[in-house]
């Protein structure tokens, strides 16, 4: 099925926002202004966007430590996210959470998460709520190739199967969990989807560096899950362009690996080549979006820099609703 011009423009813009956001953070972090651990999503944009373009705020997602892309794709505010990463009290979480804990439950974004494997069980609960409420809503757990080895992920998959929860386990296989290769850590001959299938659900596989592969795969997955057929899992083969966290020496990479990935596995380049090749969008469309997104990120950074800082009193609020 052909996407409309508007849908194509929006998908590209979303991916570009994530890329620009992350590439800018990569530069800003080196200045020492941003505190804490930051895990960048560059390279994986097609997955977040290809999944979330099918969703609205009533569908739920839960993310990981590498959460910026999922948050942005699900509709979290760019400026507030940037402020959160800067630790401002005007940020998404008032500066209390930072990069690893950005959340916007009203948008159906149940949070980035610092504990690997914590998301999948929570996604099952959100899926059960969706089932109780009716209306064909789904819940999606994003997990990595590393998180797929966590017992919590296994338990969540089985629980989703036995309760027929409308839950989708999206595995982003970027081939690394921190410094370890997936070929070593995933015991099933590096097949994550096959393992999910053994839990008793239908599975799909797609190219996580190709927006159209993700988008079209997800159309089928969502039709299946929204149709009341229980959970499903998808494995997207994708790439992480930066280190595990900012500051990672990346000695596990092969020689020239990142240059090669950026050349042949860049979802933005692939999108552009395919869409201009088919005369769906023109170079001018991309140029316009690129400039607009650059301005947006520039503005969000300068606003984050001068945004209000939290004070010592803020430490004590938000622990409870009443106490």
């Amino acid at each position: 099925m052909q996407l409309s011009r508007e849908a194509l423009l929006r998908a590209y813009r979303q991916m570009r926002v994530i890329r620009e956001f992350e590439e800018r953070l990569h530069v800003e972090i080196m200045t020492g202004e941003i505190a804490g651990f930051t895990h960048l999503y560059s390279g994986q944009e097609a997955v977040a966007v290809g999944v979330c373009e099918h969703l609205d705020h009533e569908d739920k997602i839960i993310s990981t430590h590498r959460g910026h892309g999922h948050c942005l794709a699900k509709g979290c505010d760019v400026g507030m996210m940037m402020k959160e990463i800067w630790g401002s009290r005007e940020g998404t979480c008032k500066g209390k959470g930072g990069s690893m804990h950005i959340a916007d439950v009203a948008q159906g974004m149940l949070g980035a998460n610092g504990i690997v494997g914590a998301g999948a069980p929570i996604a099952v609960g959100a899926a059960l709520a969706a089932k109780l409420d009716g209306g064909g809503r789904v819940s999606i757990a994003f997990s990595g190739d590393g998180a797929c080895n966590q017992g919590t992920t296994f338990e969540a998959m089985n629980l989703a199967v036995v309760t027929k929860a409308p839950c989708i386990f999206v595995f982003e296989n970027n081939h690394y969990s921190e410094h370890t290769g997936w070929k070593y850590a995933v015991g099933t001959g590096s097949d994550i989807a096959g393992r999910a299938e053994a839990f008793g659900m239908r599975v799909w596989r797609g190219d996580g560096t190709d927006f159209f592969s993700v988008y079209e795969t997800m159309r089928d997955v969502l039709e299946h899950v929204r149709g009341g057929n229980g959970p499903a899992a998808v494995e997207f083969d994708t790439e992480r362009f930066f280190g595990h966290f900012e500051g990672d020496p990346q000695r596990y990479r092969g020689k020239g690996e990142i240059d090669r990935l950026r050349k042949v596995r860049d979802c933005l380049t692939k999108f552009r080549t395919r869409v201009t090749g088919a005369d769906l969008l023109a170079d001018g469309d991309f140029g316009r979006i690129d400039a607009e997104v650059r301005d947006l990120i520039e503005k969000s950074v300068s606003e984050a820099r001068s945004a209000a800082r939290p004070t010592a009193d803020d430490v004590l609020s938000d622990v409870y609703i009443s106490y």
């Binding site: 690394y176 410094h179 370890t180 290769g181 850590a185 990346q250 000695r251 596990y252 990479r253 020689k255």
Partner: peptide, 20 residues
């Protein structure tokens, strides 16, 4: 433990980190 060697199953090879 996790990544106490590092680099297992990668092109860079083992001992990429020796624990984070």
């Amino acid at each position: 433990g996790e990544d106490i060697v590092g680099g297992m199953g990668t092109d860079g090879g083992p001992e990429a980190i020796g624990g984070i």
